[in-house]
Design a protein around this nucleic acid. Structure first.
Length: 468
RNA sequence: GGCGCGUUCGUCUAGUGGCCCAGGACGACAGGUUCUCAACCUGUAAAUCAUGGGUUCGAAUCCCAUACGCGUCACCA
């Protein structure tokens, strides 16, 4: 049985990196007919953001990465929110103390600060000096009963090599002297990530822990904890961090991390997933475009690369364009209608789709291309005032047409251009601007057909009537 | 600074000792198609496989060192 999880902390908008993690977690679970779990890591009370948890679920649904177990879905291993599991962590912390693997620490923030400063001056690693480890049992008892604030720290063994295993990179060895006596239980009774993740992964029977590379350096703490508890540990896979073109870790300051941004731009969830799948993983046949299902069938976590890829928005846009072009017409229409809002005639939108689908990379590209279908242009990108004679002739010829279809329209105009001895490009550009207001537009004849004879003649008439 | 991870075209990558004077994709550029822009088709440029040493008949692939990049060193996750 394979069980995977994402463990986001509800500290803001859903991050694209969380989706990246979720894709591999979800994919691997599904490939093995296992479960994918969402556990909310809300142990940092100061950084909580209201509503963030809901947004995480909504994003997962949007991407089609819906979890099997979570607070909203239920499951046999709940609660799925860490703030509701406090008693579990507390008793586990006590257990560690009892067995000599952890100890109470009464050091004040000020003292810790001082220790850190001193060690920094001595050019040593800024870590805890283990002062409270040496406290006598009586001392501890006394401080405890006097109600002194305290935390629980893990007792990291000295002078040993801690071997951890990452399934992507292999064995990594750490010198235990470089591993801090990590706080496990904070003074507010909440666990730190390190205690919580180990306890929860074990209790929730997680088999494959997929998480970001930033966790590698704290993995020795986690391995130690598993040993302290005498638990079997899951397999660990540290995926590399997504980076910006400037090579830093993808962050709010440096790039687009907010899932909402991708939605606002009109990226399709399938396209984003496909793109994300190509970061650190590649299709065995070198395919670039493939479905989520195909990805799941082929996914092997071990084959992931350990290099941090740069997130290339241009390639994502190309891929999104591919998806838009391959979308079934009805599906494109409904997505487009949802995207641009209900104020537009759905039938009209439907008619325009064949003209613009290969011209859009994102749904947000639709309106700039098609607004002229919905409202008469108010300005013209080219000055048409010198061409009024041509427009008069155009109007005449068009007016004669009974069969208002793209082809006859085009033919009639071609004939006229030749008769007037005007270059095609110049002739059609004038007409284009008169009809659409713009130099760049969907195919003209087809657009005019959709617009209708009356509307087109009116638009040309406006140009003729305009001064000077 | 300590520790850790990483390093193949601008970017994502293929490559696990001979099939690689390194293949694909995006992007760029050029041409074709064309009433615009796209899409589509064809082609071009682009990687001394970070550098330097080994090992080997043979290395992008194995080993070592150096450089560079990133991550991490909290009662944040």
């Amino acid at each position: 049985m394979v069980r995977t999880r994402i463990a986001p902390s509800p500290t803001g908008f859903p991050h694209i990196g969380t989706i990246y993690q979720a894709l591999f977690d979800y994919g691997y679970a599904k490939k093995n007919a296992g479960q994918f779990i969402v556990r909310i890591e809300d142990t940092d009370r100061l950084r909580l953001v209201a509503g963030a948890e809901e947004k995480i679920y909504q994003s997962l649904d949007w991407f089609g990465l819906t979890e099997d177990e979570s607070r909203r879905k239920g499951g046999d291993y709940g609660p799925y929110r860490q703030s509701e599991r406090l008693k579990i962590y507390q008793s586990r912390a006590l257990e560690l103390i009892k067995n000599g693997y952890a100890y109470y620490c009464f050091c004040s923030k000020e003292r810790l600060e001082e220790v850190r400063k001193r060690r920094a001056q001595e050019k040593k690693i800024p870590m805890y000096d283990k002062y409270c480890r040496a406290l006598s049992a009586e001392d501890v008892q006394e401080k405890l009963s006097s109600g002194l604030t305290r935390v629980v720290r893990m007792k990291v063994p000295e002078n040993t090599a801690i071997k951890v295993r990452d399934e992507i990179r292999g064995e990594i060895v750490f010198d235990s002297n470089t591993v801090d006596d990590q706080v496990l239980l904070k003074s507010d009774g909440f666990p730190t990530y390190h205690l919580a993740v180990v306890v929860d992964d074990h209790l929730m029977k997680i088999t494959h822990a997929v998480r970001g590379e930033e966790w590698i350096s704290s993995t020795p703490k986690h391995f130690l904890l598993y040993d302290f508890f005498g638990w079997e540990r899951p397999l660990f896979f540290h995926t590399s961090l997504l980076r910006n073109p400037d090579r830093y870790k993808l962050s709010k300051r440096h790039g687009h991390t907010n899932v909402a941004w991708y939605q606002e731009q009109g990226f399709l969830p399938e396209a984003i997933l496909n793109y994300l799948a190509l970061m650190g993983w590649s299709h065995p046949q070198g395919k670039e475009i493939f479905s989520k299902e195909e990805f799941i069938g082929l996914l092997e976590l071990k084959n992931m690369k350990a290099v941090a890829p740069v997130f290339d928005i241009h390639k994502l846009e190309w891929m999104n364009g591919e998806y838009i072009r391959n979308l079934e017409a009805g599906s494109l229409k409904s997505q487009l209608v949802r995207f641009i809002g209900k104020n537009y005639d759905e039938k009209l939108v439907e008619k325009t789709i064949p003209l613009v689908r290969e011209r859009m990379k994102k749904l947000v590209d639709y309106m700039p291309l098609c607004s002229f279908f919905f409202e008469t242009p108010t300005g013209y990108e080219i000055d048409l005032s010198a061409k009024k004679d041509i427009f008069v002739k155009m109007k005449e010829e068009l007016n004669k047409l009974n069969d208002w279809k793209a082809e006859p329209i085009g033919e009639a105009m071609l004939v006229l251009a030749k008769r007037l001895n005007v270059k095609n490009s110049e002739f059609f550009m004038s007409l284009r601007v008169a009809i659409t207001g713009k130099k760049i537009s969907p195919p003209l004849n087809e657009s005019m057909e959709i617009l209708g004879k009356k509307d087109c003649l009116t638009r040309i008439g406006r140009v003729i009537a305009a001064g000077p």
